[in-house]
Nucleic acid binder design. Structure first.
Lengths: 238, 238
DNA sequence: AAGGCTGTTCTTGTATACAAGAAAATCGAT
DNA sequence: ATCGATTTTCTTGTATACAAGAACAGCCTT
C-alpha cells in the first residue's frame, strides 16, 4: 500500500462505499502517517480527489469528504439518460447490428448480477455488475470514451445510489429492467426504449426521503461562508 | 503573474490558441524560473493541466503539450450534439417557455458575434462569443452544470476548431446557423432542430485535410512505446 | 566503423524544513 | 460569569535539498 495509485484507489473506494462519511476530515499529516509516505506525493493524491469532487478543500483549514450534492446527481442522471436513450436507440434501430459476441457478454453480465442478488451483503457486487452492464452498452456503441469521462464526475451520483439501495431491495426490479432493455435491442424495437431508460435511471429521486434519513450526508446549500474554496483564495480555480 | 490561478490560465490559453504547439516541452524548472515561483506550486498547475488533457506526462522524462486527439474530438462532438438536440428541443417544444430576458441576451450575443466578424484577427473573439451562445442555451435549459463539465475535457475539440477556422472563413455560415437555431426555438418549431444541430456541430470532420496540413499537431496513434504514462509507472492512474 | 559499456546530465519524484493563515485556547479585565 | 485581545496550535502552502530514473555522449573494445 505504498504507491500513489494504490492510495488513491483505497481512498476513492472508502469514500464511495461511505466508510468515510461526508464531512470526515482528511488531514495531510494524518494520511501521510497512515500510508507511511511523505506529504508531497500525498498532496498529489488529495489534489486528484478534489478534482473528482471526492473532497472539498478549505484553504489552510483542511480537507473534508464532500457532502452529496443532489444538484450534481440530477444533472448526471439527465446526462446519462439523454445519452443512453440515443445509444440504445441506435443499437436497436440497427444502422449497426449488435454483434453476437456483444450479446453474449451482456447476457453473461446479467447472470452475474442475478448471482449477486442471492448473496447476502450483495450491494457492492450488484452495483459493480450494474455498472458493467451500462459500460458494455456504451462500449458496443463505440462510446466507451464517454463512459469513462462520466465516471470521473460520478462521486455524488454513485453515493446517492448507495443510499437508495440501502432502503429498497429493488435489485430484482433493476435487473428486470436490464433484461427488458436488452430485449428491446435484440428485437429491434426502438419505440419503448426512451421511456424505459428514463424510468430506469430516474429511480425516484426522492429528496424528501433522503433529507429525512440522511440529512448529514447531504449538501444543503448553506450560506456561501460555509462553502469550499472556489475563488481567488490560495487555490486553483477550475 | 504570481498566483497559481493566473499561471494556470496563462498556460491554458497559450495551449488553446496554439502558441504552444503540440509536442512543446513544459519543463518544471524552466517554468518555475519564468514565473518566479518554486517547483512545488508549479507542479500543482502541471497536474491540473495533465488532468484536463492539455499535457502528457512522461514520468522522469518530461511534460509535452498533448497532440490533438481526433478520437476525443469525435466523441465530444457526439456528446454535445446529442445533448444540444435535447436541450434545444425542450426549449422549443415549450414545456418551459423561453423567458424574454433570455431571448434578449441571446440576441445580444449574436450581435457581438457579428461585430467580431468585421474585425480583423477576429477568430479568438468570434470563438469566445460562439461559446457564449451555446453556454447561454445550456444555462437557459438549466444545464449550465453540464456545460462546465464538458469544458473541462474540451482541449482537443477546442484546438481542432481553431485549425478548421484557419482554413474556411465560414464564420458567417456559423452565425447564420445560430440565427436559424434561435429562430426555430422562438417559433417553437422543434421539427428541424435535430438536423440543424447535427450539421452545426459536425463541421465536416475532415481528417484527411488536417493530416495533410497539420500532421505535426495530431496524435497519430503510434506504437505504445511512444505513448504517455497511463499505467503503473510512477504516475497516478485515473 | 559498429556495438556496447560507463559516466554525465538531463528530467521528474520525494522528503523535509519553514512560512503563513485560520481557528481554538488562554488569560485578562470588567 | 462574560466578553475581548493575545497567544498557542492546528491546518495547508511554499521553498529547497536530495534521490532516482532515463537519455545521451563519449570512449573503449572488437
Amino acid at each position: 500500500m505504498t504507491s500513489k495509485a494504490a492510495i488513491l484507489g483505497q481512498l476513492r473506494s472508502e469514500i464511495l462505499n461511505l466508510e468515510l462519511k461526508p464531512g470526515s476530515i482528511l488531514s495531510e499529516t494524518a494520511l501521510s502517517e497512515r500510508f507511511r509516505i511523505s506529504r508531497t506525493p500525498l498532496r498529489d493524491v488529495l489534489k486528484q480527489l478534489a478534482h473528482e469532487g471526492y473532497i472539498d478543500v478549505y484553504p489552510k483549514r483542511g480537507n473534508l469528504v464532500s457532502y452529496i450534492d443532489l444538484e450534481s446527481v440530477e444533472q448526471m442522471i439527465y446526462l446519462r439518460s439523454t445519452l443512453e436513450k440515443d445509444i440504445l436507440g441506435n443499437l436497436a434501430s440497427g444502422s449497426a447490428a449488435l454483434p453476437l459476441r456483444g450479446t453474449l457478454e451482456l447476457k453473461e453480465i446479467l447472470e452475474k448480477q442475478e448471482e449477486a442478488i442471492r448473496e447476502e451483503q450483495a450491494h457492492e457486487t450488484f452495483l459493480h455488475w450494474d455498472d458493467a452492464f451500462h459500460k458494455k452498452l456504451f462500449a458496443l456503441a463505440g462510446r466507451g470514451y464517454l463512459w469513462d469521462l462520466i465516471q470521473q464526475s460520478n462521486v455524488h451520483y454513485a453515493r446517492y445510489r448507495r443510499l437508495h439501495m440501502l432502503k429498497k431491495e429493488k435489485l430484482e426490479a433493476i435487473l428486470a429492467e436490464h433484461r427488458l432493455l436488452l430485449d428491446c435491442v435484440l428485437r429491434r424495437d426502438a419505440s419503448r426504449i426512451a421511456e424505459l431508460v428514463e424510468h430506469h435511471l430516474h429511480e425516484d429521486i426522492n429528496a424528501a426521503y433522503l433529507q429525512e434519513n440522511f440529512a448529514d450526508y447531504l449538501n444543503m446549500s448553506k450560506p456561501d461562508s460555509l462553502k469550499p474554496a472556489s475563488g481567488a483564495e490560495e487555490n486553483i480555480e477550475s
